[in-house]
Nucleic acid binder design. Structure first.
Lengths: 324, 324
DNA sequence: TTGTAAGCGTTATCAA
DNA sequence: TTGATAACGCTTACAA
């Protein structure tokens, strides 16, 4: 038995006799042998590892429902393919760049996921410069040729608007996410489009940074208007819940005096009073499909935009017809 | 310049003249060369990579405040040391074992973190069998010789009990975590001890699985007692918030009729009404120190129990003196 | 102080 | 269909 034969067998390639194959497999079984990933990587120049760098402000880390679910989804996509995921969480842009550079230069990863793309994000260019495959998770990056895979952010806000409109609301506020992110822009655009399509007047969206404090503050801003909205759509559940508390503290009742729609459907959305009407994305599936797409990219395959499950609109008790 | 010299320089080892060192560094700088992690791993048989396998029920993934913070903490400990983290999220025990075995056999990691240890957990034995270093994150495992690093779980519950007692509560209920986990046991023991020390009578703790639904159900169980408690301490914030909602739905007011204490201090704890009194752990620091400890273990160092920051007790508005 | 050469555990190339 | 043998990019004796 030569090493070559064994190599052929475990990568089940043609050109080895059935009996030799059987003997190799038996021997492997007896010895409990497993191929060494590092050595293989050295030989093939492929590490069978993908990288995920998450840049998150520490105060948002434990709230963000996206991160853990997405990671779990990636895992379900990667495990059957024998790929591993190396993960890095960084606090700022500088550390973020270093993280990508190290991952690439060390040869630790074959490709990386790019999340939370910012407008004028340097990462797509950096990736082509470093020569590693990348997949944008979210709305496509303008002008770059890095492929992107994201759910249709717009459909969620459109669903929210049409739901509120059907309840009779005509004066709807929006607390959108932090400025500078591609997905925030995409959702804001969708927001304006949805209002226009529905023939509703627009209250300028108030930007907030996804934290509870910002959500509460934005809520007060909207309720302080000369003509306050009868419903508010928030960019995430955390801000929506903080918004409910803020509204309640002003003596308003939700949903009687103010309807509230969240985004994400965190497990808590169901546990508060009133239970939150919100938009749910299947982040787990998103992660799985993203993982498969990125693997196929690193293996030289073409990127094919796979179908992601559409967002779901979950109607609970935080929305009701407006007071007239 | 020979490869050996270069190798000596980048690992800054003695035995190379200052001028040779300078020339090597210059060349490295000019060529933008970086050592390849895989090749180095093959040679040294050390991957400079640590593994974290998280077994989590999918429905808890996006709520668990521990996971993302701990990962971020690990990262801050690992990055300066040039180590990477490979992460795996698995749904059940079988997949969990496979994950550890693959990580070890592939030679992908030098050591792993063991979280959420269960009573009679097979993992400590598996780790010694696989011959890879491991560090238990949480209370120590009975009888094993795998080192453990955890905050004193007891002090949180003791603080909660003494806070409630000082407010005048004498009949305090407890919704503890899922049975079968070492940390649940540890906290339950601490709970009984704290009550005994305070000379308070014990209501049997109700076990719940950390979900909001379970928290609500446990709350109803306690409030259905012939003599319901005037205060309840929960094993996590999610259950506490669900508990508040459950109590409110029965016409009780929090904190006037029922005081509530949570555990974790998730960002939402501050955004609901009433803001939640809770126990905060510095999970970020915990992760950092755990990472450093595990690296030192894999490099053959002795394990030295580092000091973790003590838990903090955060008093907000969900606790008040009992009605008399 | 430096260079040479032998591994590390795979895959890939070629003769046999 | 097989078995040598050379990479892959590093570390580490050991010799110069």
């Amino acid at each position: 038995m030569s090493k070559a034969t064994v190599s052929f067998v475990i990568n089940d390639r043609p050109g080895v006799s059935p009996q030799a194959r059987r003997r190799v497999l038996e021997a492997i079984d007896q010895l409990g042998w497993q191929p060494n990933a590092g050595a293989r990587a050295l030989s093939t120049k492929r590490s069978q590892t993908l990288g995920l760098v998450m840049r998150r402000p520490p105060e948002l880390l434990s709230t963000d429902p996206f991160f853990p679910q997405f990671v779990a989804g990636i895992e379900t996509g990667l495990a059957p393919l024998g790929y591993a995921l190396v993960l890095q969480v960084v606090p700022d842009e500088e550390t973020e760049r270093q993280a990508y550079e190290r991952l690439a230069r060390d040869g630790r990863v074959d490709g990386v996921f790019l999340t939370d793309l910012r407008t004028d994000d340097p990462r797509p260019a950096l990736m082509t410069e470093l020569g590693i495959s990348a997949l944008i998770v979210g709305p496509p990056h303008h002008g770059g040729r890095v492929p992107a895979l994201g759910v249709d952010d717009g459909s969620g806000v459109r669903r929210a608007v049409s739901h509120l409109r059907s309840l009779g609301h005509r004066w709807i506020g929006h607390v959108c996410g932090a400025a500078g992110y591609v997905h925030t822009e995409a959702r804001c655009d969708a927001w304006r489009g949805a209002l226009a399509d529905a023939g509703l007047p627009e209250i300028p969206p108030v930007a907030a940074d996804f934290t509870g404090a910002a959500g509460a503050q934005a809520t007060h801003r909207l309720l302080d208007l000369d003509r306050p909205p009868t419903a508010i759509v928030y960019a995430n559940d955390l801000m929506a819940i903080a918004g409910i508390t803020a509204a309640t503290s002003r003596g308003l009742r939700v949903p009687e005096d103010l309807s509230v729609v969240g985004f994400d459907d965190i497990p808590l959305a169901d546990c508060i009073a009133p239970p939150l009407t919100t938009v749910r994305q299947d982040v787990l599936t998103w992660g799985r499909i993203a993982a498969q797409a990125l693997v196929s990219l690193t293996e030289g395959g073409k990127f094919q935009a796979a179908e992601l499950p559409p967002v779901e609109f979950v109607v609970r008790a935080s929305t009701a017809p407006p007071r007239t």
